[in-house]
């Protein structure tokens, strides 16, 4: 499968550290009938960045933009990890061997085929070599279309 198909679209949203802002984002995409599949929040004392994997990333992006949020689209990888002790470290070991730096990562709650799914971004914004390295090591990088359906 082409590497391009394995790049999952992540929607990110700029949030001020104010009460109710996260709720506003969730309501906006909830009302548009868009389902959140995984999320993580990075925050500093001043602001936060909400990162989302949703079932319809393009529509989520447009909807949030229309509502005046600062949003961005980033490619990330969703990787299947054996759901057992040491599962994640095995994957990370592959990346270390290729000197690929992980920028951030977070996990899906729902397992797929008995495996945990971890989302991450790294490799200094060059994801294609990362996919190739993981594929070669037998780690399953999920096709984006399958990720949106989790």
């Amino acid at each position: 499968m082409a590497v391009q198909n394995k790049l999952t679209k992540q929607v990110s949203v700029f949030l001020e550290n104010k009460s109710g802002r996260l709720l506003d984002v969730c309501q906006t995409i909830g009302q548009a009938r868009i389902n959140i599949r995984a999320l993580c929040i990075a925050d500093t004392s001043d602001f936060g960045i909400l990162r989302l994997i949703v079932d319809e990333p393009d529509r989520a992006l447009a909807t949030l933009q229309q509502q005046g949020f600062s949003v961005g689209e980033t490619s990330v990888l969703a990787v299947q990890v054996p759901d057992q002790p040491g599962g994640l470290s095995g994957v990370l070991e592959n990346l270390r061997q290729h000197e690929i730096n992980v920028e951030y990562m977070y996990a899906f709650v729902t397992p797929v085929q008995g495996r945990a799914v971890v989302v991450f971004r790294g490799g200094d914004d060059q994801l294609e070599p990362v996919v190739e390295a993981l594929d070669a090591a037998g780690v399953v990088v999920m096709p984006a279309q399958d990720v949106y359906k989790i």
Partner: peptide
């Protein structure tokens, strides 16, 4: 205000 032009999905980028 953070416009689309300066938005980044990493804390490092915004900082």
């Amino acid at each position: 205000e953070v416009s689309a032009d300066i938005f980044s999905d990493t804390v490092r980028g915004l900082e």
